[in-house]
Design a protein around this nucleic acid. Structure first.
Lengths: 192, 192
DNA sequence: CACCTAAGTCAACGACAATTGACATCCGGC
DNA sequence: GCCGGATGTCAATTGTCGTTGACTTAGGTG
């Protein structure tokens, strides 16, 4: 057929359900992040994954199922229990003053897309409840942990969005004031 | 057709291109804000505007044209100076505890939805500058207004996103605590 | 080696929505 | 009062996409 090797996949992948599933999932995350739920076509996802459309139905039940799976795979409760309450506010503030991390911003973009599409918002809500709000609630503890976790999560998200939009790190006095203020906010939020 | 009854839609709007155009544009903003680009159907927009689908093509060229036109119409400075510093924190907190579609916050929700599209993403940055950072900076005044405006805007957006994800209003004790906490945050943010 | 199940392929269906052009109707000026 | 362009209506077309079921093939097992 072709003397020159196919670029994408040198070994066309032996029959391996797990590997195919993983490939589809990865392709789905990328496509959903780039195009959003509605515009991402299952045919494209399958093509990128080097698989057939019908396999998506088999492994994930359908588009919604695939999306939900991709969502769960994208929300990793970033080792929250390890966070130190004493330094947390300042650490977060410093992080938010910087530039968006290249690798992770893709995942976040995916989540942001999911949040802004009415179709996927309910799905995201479930995923966030389970994998984000839950851990934060545990970590916060104390009285009325649920609404307090909500407020903390919302604020956190807001700064992530701001950093994403801003694109570049803050500098000079603006940076100082920013960090100071943001730290004060989180200080307030983790208090009983 | 019928001589007796002329009461089918008494004054629906006389033939008036400008008026229909405006009606379509307004309906488009609402629909795009609520449903997002992909799920907003031109038929629905036309129906809400009391017009025919074909007129959208005539006046805006197509869905894309209508969208960009509606987007441009949504980017305009808010009237923030009217806000009362005394009640602002509690008012905002109450608004955020509600459902995404209560009140008249169509415009920014529209922008938030649109922001996820690669072509329109830069517009969000512009919109945030125009609609938020500028006015908020003026409104805040005082020392280091710029970074303080940033923090305020970021927090504000975070709660908007949270409300979008949540989808429904908070209730009971959770709502109370939420409002109380959010108000406290904004109280802190508008302080010198 | 034969067989059976899991893995993968293929083509077609049906729904939905944007687009399009042909047609009907209004209304202001001659 | 009538004519012509502007305004509004309608139905058909087209294209995309998720879904579906029947089919083919690989590959481990007895």
């Amino acid at each position: 057929m072709n003397e020159t090797a196919i670029l994408e996949r040198a070994p066309p992948r032996r029959r391996d359900a797990a590997a195919t599933r993983a490939a589809i999932l990865e392709a789905a995350q990328a496509q959903f992040a780039e195009a959003g739920y509605d515009r991402a076509a299952l045919r494209d996802i399958a093509a990128v994954a080097g698989a057939d459309v019908a396999l998506i139905k088999r492994y994930f039940g359908g588009k919604e199922g695939l999306f939900t799976e991709a969502l769960k795979a994208s929300i990793r409760p970033d080792r929250m229990p390890e966070w130190d309450r004493a330094t947390f506010p300042h650490d977060v503030a410093t992080m938010m003053a910087g530039a968006p991390h290249e690798g992770r911003s893709h995942a976040f973009q995916f989540l942001l897309r999911a949040a802004t599409s009415p179709t996927t918002a309910p799905l995201l809500n479930l995923a966030v409840q389970e994998r984000f709000l839950g851990p934060i609630r545990e970590w916060l503890g104390g009285e009325a942990a649920q609404p307090r976790a909500r407020v903390l999560a919302a604020t956190y998200i807001g700064f992530l969005v701001e950093r994403l939009i801003r694109g570049e790190p803050l500098q000079g006095r603006e940076r100082e004031v920013f960090i100071e203020r943001v730290a004060a906010v989180f200080e307030l939020l983790i208090a009983d």
